[in-house]
């Protein structure tokens, strides 16, 4: 009898600090498997965010940098432009990417940087104890919205994948979820494609991952899955929002 599962080499053999059930850990494994399969580990750089994934550089077995809050896409831009043969990905939560870092992600996407962004949407600020994020759902409670998010006071949730897909330059944008085994397998395909696009110089690729934060939602991990499916998925439908086969440069050359 042989083991048919194996920890990817691109994930260091250490216990991660994430809470029981946290979706960050699953996303880490999928990225690490992708690095192994594409044989890019030795030229990959992870840009770790501020948020629960601040220690991502201690888990991925590749080069790393940890940036100021929300600035991942700008840092990734610099690394990629200075070292175009490297494979650079920015790993960000929804507080990091959609509040303080909104400018950086929008402009990196608009410039069509050939980088990969993995966006973990858990509808809350995890690391700092459950404050409202731009992605927090209407009615969802947070320490800064104890009666639940009220659209009249705090506006409606932001659908980042849909917003970015309205820009011309991004090449690939998909929203996935890690709530079930079939969805984890689909999430892996999306993440792999987002890295393949960078290897093939197609351009800016973005995967939003719906993920549970049982700790700050105040539920067990299993109840967290129910919340993700029943409450998050209607607001954040899974799917491909953009999938261009050619790079922006190819399109311009062909006069398209």
């Amino acid at each position: 009898m042989n083991a048919i599962t194996k920890r990817p080499e691109s994930l260091l053999d250490v216990t991660m600090h994430y809470c029981p059930g946290c979706g960050h850990s699953v996303a880490h494994r999928l990225i690490a498997e992708t690095m192994d399969e594409l044989k890019i580990r030795e030229r990959t750089v992870v840009v770790a965010p501020v948020g629960c994934a601040v220690f991502a550089d201690k888990y991925f077995n590749c080069d790393s940098i940890q940036g100021p809050h929300g600035r991942g896409p700008a840092i990734a831009t610099g690394i990629k432009r200075a070292k175009p043969d490297s494979i650079v990905f920015s790993y960000q939560g929804d507080g990091d990417l959609a509040s303080i870092g909104m400018a950086e992600i929008v402009h990196a996407a608009a410039r069509g940087e050939n980088i990969t962004v993995i966006f973990i949407n858990n509808a809350i600020y995890g690391m700092t104890g459950g404050q409202m994020a731009p992605t927090t759902l209407v009615g969802q409670t947070a320490t800064t919205a104890p009666k639940g998010r009220n659209p009249l006071l705090q506006g409606f949730p932001m659908n980042i994948s849909e917003m970015l897909s309205k820009l011309e330059s991004p090449r690939y944008i998909e929203r996935v979820s890690v709530d079930s085994a079939p969805n984890v397998i689909k999430a892996k395909k999306a993440i792999k494609k987002a890295f393949e696009n960078q290897v093939n110089k197609i351009g800016f690729s973005f995967v939003e991952v719906l993920s549970i934060c049982p700790t700050n939602w105040g539920v067990t991990p299993l109840k967290g899955l129910d919340f993700l499916r029943e409450k998050m998925m209607p607001q954040y439908p899974l799917g491909v929002f953009k999938d261009e086969k050619e790079s922006v440069a190819q399109k311009i050359q062909e006069g398209k």
């Binding site: 042989n2 083991a3 599962t5 920890r7 991660m16 994430y18 494994r29």
Partner: peptide
């Protein structure tokens, strides 16, 4: 049955499947 569905969802890579 060795389907590895448990492995897919395990956040902490605690499961090894043998077949």
């Amino acid at each position: 049955i060795g389907c590895a569905m448990c492995y897919q969802v395990c956040p902490d890579l605690a499961i090894t499947v043998f077949k």
